[in-house]
Design a protein around this nucleic acid. Structure first.
Lengths: 150, 150
DNA sequence: TTGACTGCAAAATCTTTGCACCCTT
DNA sequence: AAGGGTGCAAAGATTTTGCAGTCAA
């Protein structure tokens, strides 16, 4: 989970015979400039790009998001809203987890070194190459506690 | 995250003005009898029911799965296969997490008391009512390491 | 008896894919 | 020049929803 720049992205792609296209570079840039803790869905990203005057197709966006998630550059978040969200996969001091209200989707970020350590240890023990490790807590927030379950 | 029986399900439903229907009871039973560590998608569940001669519609299945997840009876798993899976939300000694290969979806279960404790502590600190807490590790398994990223 | 629940079918969402053309390497 | 990448449109997959009839309480 190292920090990625256009150059490191290029190198990693080339190692595998893939290419660095303007689209991929632009998308990486969007995520790099995203304020800490923000995340985008495929459609959000499409909007942001449109607003910047960039015309990248949704297909390419989906393909790129999946690619970068599999490379460990982005992390795929399931914030229980029917679609995935993505954010930069930041290394240690910024790495965080999510507490989510299953009713109103209110989300709180929190950090945990021990969880991060558990993730790394487990992946290593099984011989897996770690990409991302996220603790997701599903719960009911104070405002929704009494409305269970709908 | 307590163990649920038809009776406790009935009581919890009644507390909120909901009802215990044969469909809900049957679905709960399926999950109770599911071998530890197994999980079902909405469609899997539909198949299992068909095989048992039960005719419960997919709509009802989706509605029931969501309901039981929000009640904390089932846990919703994102095993990166384009659809959700569900399993009983078992309390402490059986509670587990998942290590998943993002390429082939090979999944390994593991337990962690410290992670569970972190989840409980975090929810409490924020005043949330805990439903489920899962550490999901995305990684590349030994067999897929070298095929990154497609 | 009441209104929550179910089943059905249609609709809505989100995501993937085939194909012709483009462009990085 | 080769073949990976993109855009478009169409297809796929999963999940949700409106509605009329059903049934738990």
């Amino acid at each position: 989970m190292a920090f990625h720049t256009a150059t490191s992205l290029k190198n990693e792609l080339h190692e595998r015979g893939w290419r660095l296209t303007p689209q991929r570079e632009t998308i990486l840039q969007i995520f790099q400039n995203l304020p800490n803790g923000n995340h985008l869905s495929a459609d959000d990203l499409h909007q942001v790009l449109q607003d910047q005057g960039e015309r990248i197709s949704l297909s390419t966006i989906y393909r790129t998001l999946k690619l970068m998630a599999r490379m460990g550059i982005l992390r795929e978040l399931e914030l229980a809203e029917g679609h995935k969200h993505y954010e930069m996969n930041q290394p240690y001091p910024h790495h965080h987890h999510h507490l989510i209200c299953v009713r109103c989707n209110r989300t709180i970020e929190f950090k945990s070194d021990t969880v991060l350590r558990t993730g790394a240890k487990t992946a290593k023990k099984e011989g897996f190459h770690l990409l991302d490790c996220q603790l997701t807590i599903h719960a009911l927030c104070p405002a929704c506690k009494d409305f269970l379950p709908v």
